[in-house]
Amino acid sequence: MVTRMQPDLSVRIGKLDLAYPTLMGSGCYGSGAEFEPFVDLARIGGVVLKSVTRAPRLGNPTPRLVHTPAGMLNAIGLQNPGIAWYLAHDVAKFASRPCKVIGSVAGFSVDDYAVVCEQLAARDEIHAIELNISCPNVASEGETFACDPRLTARVVRAARATTGKTLIVKLSPNVTDIAAIAREAEAAGADALAVVNTVRGMAIDVDAWHPRLGNVTGGLSGPAIRPIAVLAVYEVARAVKIPIVGQGGIETVTDALEFFLAGASAISIGTANFTDPRVPETIVDGLSEYLARRKLASIRDIVGRANLGFANAYQFEGDEG
């Protein structure tokens, strides 16, 4: 007698258990509440909140968005009310989310990251922390951390010392050797890596003879960057043993599968939510169907399967012997 089982989509990222392997990308999903009328949040793994900094930030001047072929440029500039106001007024509301809630921390010094990480991680409403060391849209800072292996190590060590909660470090694709940065983050105590943030880009208004973004430069997202992101996941997965949250232009279940097969243990959806808020549920349904069709019991069974010379021991958990 064969019992037809629903494939298991749950994954574990560090100490964080996710019912579904789908996170909603930081800065793309507000606090989750904004999308609640349009999607069942109980059917996503978790929301990565918009990044918060030590001091309030008004963000960049407009235009902050430009639609480009197969993607979009954004330069929001980390608009947020600052950690003190955030803790006092906003964080309590996150308790009601039917999915995991991951706080995102950004900063301009090692100390910034440590202070904000400690305060945010101390709250029960926050299940894990993502360190946004790769925001491309703040003048001369921000991304500096993710582009320098030593700075990456320093900021991760400092944040690690403040909390036992799962620490996900978000890496930048705007580097020569992302694997080297990934190794530093792992050695400094990261529990997982988010791969990747947006790709730096620019668009110019040919009538006004002026860059189209208020911030001049921006971060490119959407399917335009997917092959870049898939390669980054592939390379990072060969360099570290900690799990990877793959992201960059995922719109369909096929896109998501590319990331899992390259070595991601979970995925993150950002820009696609703007096209159609049903995308996260469509992808979860598609993953179930894909696994069932191939008679695979778990999403974990396919992680890294297209990655030759795959080094990620976690991914092969339960698959050895």
Binding site: G27, C28, G30, F35, T62, L65, N74, I76, N273, F274
Partner: peptide, 10 residues
């Protein structure tokens, strides 16, 4: 981009 308040682009 999103139209629902999620991205702070507008």
């Amino acid at each position: 981009a999103c139209g629902v308040g999620g991205c702070w682009g507008c």
